[in-house]
Each structure stands twice: as structure tokens, then as C-alpha cells.
Nucleic acid binder design. Sequence first.
RNA 1: UGCAAGGGAUG
Length: 240
Amino acid sequence: VLVKVYASVGMFDEAVDTLFKVKRGGILLSTNTCNYLMNQLISWEKLDMLESVFRQLKRKGLVPNVYTYGILVKGFCRKGCLEEALDVFRKMKEDGVEPNEFTYGTYIDGLCSNGRVDSGFEFLKSLRVANVQMNVYAYTSIIRRYVKELKLQDAESVLLDMKNAGVVPDVTCYGALIQGYCKTGNILKALALHDEMESTGTKTDCKIVSAIMQCLCKLGLLAEAACRFMDYMELGVFLD
RNA sequence: UGCAAGGGAUG
């Protein structure tokens, strides 16, 4: 069964046909294989094939799991069909599959990348009211989007919100904000956040250091940049 | 470690 799918990794998706012919041969066809295939379809942007594979899957009597629905949500979001993405949640509940952090997180990220970051944040908060606590991924999607729109104060408020909710920001999360401050030339805020991050025991990485370097250089603080560069090297941070 | 979501540069 895996062999057919390998075809779709490298080449075109006649794998779909092959996949469902296999069933006729009586070989077992698994939901996982379909999940993998559907995810590949998304990365090849064959979004319309996604739904047909899903229908095939159900017709063959396979049981979609929480991953399957998560992939569907991602596909609809990628296509910009947010209502249909939301509808997936209804369908999965009908089928007795409970959405998890991944499916909700995927949807929130979809809202954000379709320019509806406010809705994303509202959605997250409404989940919290319903006693569903989201993880750091969902918060980071929102922060990242606010940063991209240069709404640093909104991004900062999300950081506060997540801390209050007891969610610990990780290196990616701090990185998104630090890079935002670097881009706007607010090196003091960037460094302050960087210190806060390290004080919580979260190690920096090369992307963050790179952003700080660029910011320092652009501000003409070459000596400071060089100095920090040496420090990070000595600290054993991987620099590229 | 089997399958789904998140961050930077004129790269």
C-alpha cells in the first residue's frame, strides 16, 4: 500500500487511482495511508482532489479519524474556504470524533493566514470559555500574524494573555515577537524580550540572533553586533 | 521515535 503513495511523493497523483484499486484486490487499505495521501495533495496544491479522496475513503467504509479531519480543515483553510473548514467540525462531531488541539490549532492558523487574525483570537478565547485550552502553537500563529501586520501591541497582549492562561511561550513564540521588534527598529524591546526568554531557561537560536544582528547593523551599532556575535558563539548557539 | 498545524534576511 505504501508503494502507491511513494508515487505521489515524487510524482503525480495517479496514486489516487492506484490506491483505490488496491481495495478491489482485497488488500487492506488504511485510513493512515489516505491521510498521508491527502496531506501530500495539499502540499501539491491539488485541493479539489482532496474532497474526492475523502468521499472515496468514506465510500470504501474506512473510518476517518481526528487526523483525517485535521487535514481537511487545513485544506479548506488553504483554499480560503473558512466556512467549509468550520463545517468540518460539525461533521466530525456528527461522526463521533472529537476535535483536538491540532484541529482547532489548524483552523485558528487558517483564520490568521486569511487575514482574520482578530477572529482567530476570538475563537481561541471562546474555546477557553468552553474549557478547551489551546497550546503554544495556536497562540504563536496569532502573535506571528499580528507581528506581520506590525501590530506589535496586539501581539504583546496575546503574549500576556497566554501567560495568564498558564501557557508557556517557547523559543518560536518569543522569536516571532523579537523579530517583529527588530523589524521596526525597536532594539531595546527586542533585547528585553530576549533577556526575558533566556531568564526562563529558553535558549535562543540562530534565527533570533540573526534578526538581532541585522537590527543592530541597520542601526549602525556594528561594534555591539560583533560583540554579541562572539558571545553567542562562545555560548554554543548554533549560528549559520 | 509510524500519519496533520506555528517564526527572520535583496536568501
